[in-house]
């Protein structure tokens, strides 16, 4: 990719399990705001959204076998080559959904380096809102991604009149989206994406893999 490529690619992963899903709804709001902020600045944007529910069997098979079936491979490639990632999970039993973590586990540990990330989470009660910061954020910092400081938590009540009247959900979505858009606009990450078959690539992650040799 060269610097003539002005299109910024945002990938959205949503690990809600129901259909329709409030997790997907939050993911869509976040990506819509981020895309429109960038477009207002004259930046071309492509958004690609993956529902992890559709990839659940492939993700499990990847955990068992060590390789990604074609549909999952496409999602992993999209994430690895993105200019920004919006990652949204429901909070189950104090933390991100198991499906969400399983997806993170099959991503190459170097694939998210320098990747701007906007974190979102949903839950039945606002009392779990810190899960973004104590559970989700460390995953992405460990992978050397760059999660923006604002994470957006949507409790069920946020979708109606029981939400925070001072900082409403749309306010928080806009704030997170703006922080994210600022990083996506500046990133030159897509130029740096590594080819795993390039021999100058660091190799620690290749050792002790799942499948035998």
């Amino acid at each position: 990719m060269t610097d003539t490529t002005a299109v910024k690619r945002i990938v959205v992963i949503s690990s809600g399990l129901s259909t329709p899903s409030s997790t997907r709804q939050l993911a869509d709001r976040l990506s819509a705001d981020a895309a429109s902020i960038l477009r207002e600045r004259g930046v071309e944007v492509e958004v690609q959204t993956f529902e992890l529910r559709d990839l659940a069997h492939d993700i499990t098979n990847n955990l068992l076998l060590g390789f990604a079936p074609p549909k999952l491979e496409a999602a992993l490639e999209a994430v690895a080559s993105a200019d920004g990632l919006i990652a949204v999970s429901p909070i189950f039993t104090t933390s991100y959904a198991g499906l969400f973590k399983s997806f993170i586990d099959v991503i190459d540990t170097q694939a998210l380096t320098d990747l701007p990330v906007l974190l979102g989470a949903t839950g039945g009660t606002p009392r779990h809102s810190l899960a973004i910061d104590y559970a989700m954020r460390p995953l992405f910092t460990y992978l050397h991604a760059i999660p923006v400081t604002t994470g957006v938590y949507a409790a069920t009540s946020d979708w109606g009149d029981g939400g925070d009247g001072v900082r409403s959900l749309p306010d928080r979505i806009f704030r997170g989206a703006k922080e994210f858009a600022d990083l996506v606009e500046r990133t030159d990450r897509a130029n740096l994406v590594n080819d795993p078959f390039a021999l100058d690539r660091p190799t620690g992650h290749l050792i002790g893999g799942l499948a035998g040799e």
């Binding site: 076998l65 060590g66 035998g212």
Partner: peptide, 24 residues
């Protein structure tokens, strides 16, 4: 199975390279 450095090692010595080819 998946380590390019091993392919490079085989190539640099002029040795053979065997791809497992069954799980991937």
């Amino acid at each position: 199975i998946r380590t390019p450095e091993v392919a490079e090692q085989a190539a640099s010595y002029g040795d053979g390279f065997f791809a497992n080819h069954i799980f991937w």
